[in-house]
């Protein structure tokens, strides 16, 4: 019985640690640097017409990782109000992400079909795009909330 209880306690402790997981504030700059470098590199690749698919794909992943690091880094003073604003920003970002994939993207694809008379892309949703939109929205909404709700 004590063993079971110990396992239960250990599990509870670890879960609590996971629930509170956040990176220190300085990681925000690292995340931003990764994001910026990957973003600029991707932008540069648009003008250079070569088939560096592997590099492009890895850059896209680095971009997402950068945004994720920004998202899970603490603020300078992470107090209870910031925690609340953070939760709200995730909530909005989630809804925006879903709306984007079920509404905006198909609509844009449909418009593109009508205007350019191209092969329909239908409801094909690019997971990278959705993740990008969600992370970016969370970042911006959190920033906006911190400015406007203070």
């Amino acid at each position: 019985m004590t063993l079971l209880k110990n396992i239960w306690e250990w599990d509870k402790r670890n879960f609590e640690r996971l629930r509170r997981f956040q990176l220190p504030h300085r990681f925000k700059q690292i995340g931003f640097a990764l994001f910026l470098v990957a973003f600029l590199a991707l932008l540069a690749f648009r003008f250079v017409n070569n088939d560096a698919t592997v590099i492009k794909t890895s850059l896209k992943y680095i971009l997402l990782i950068g945004l994720l690091i920004i998202s899970v880094s603490k603020e300078k003073i992470e107090d209870e109000r910031i925690v609340q604003l953070r939760q709200q920003s995730y909530q909005v970002a989630f809804v925006v992400g879903v709306l984007y994939s079920i509404l905006i993207l198909p609509l844009v694809n449909y418009m593109a079909d009508v205007i350019f008379k191209k092969e329909s892309l239908g409801f094909e949703v690019n997971s990278w795009e959705v993740l990008f939109i969600m992370l970016l929205m969370q970042w911006f909404i959190f920033r906006m909330m911190r400015k406007k709700c203070s």
Binding site: E75, I77, D79, E80, R81, I82, R146, C149, S150
Partner: peptide, 14 residues
């Protein structure tokens, strides 16, 4: 807490 939090409480936003 942060200064913004005190301000938010004083202005009834938090």
């Amino acid at each position: 807490v942060s200064r913004q939090t005190i301000n938010s409480i004083e202005t009834n936003r938090y």
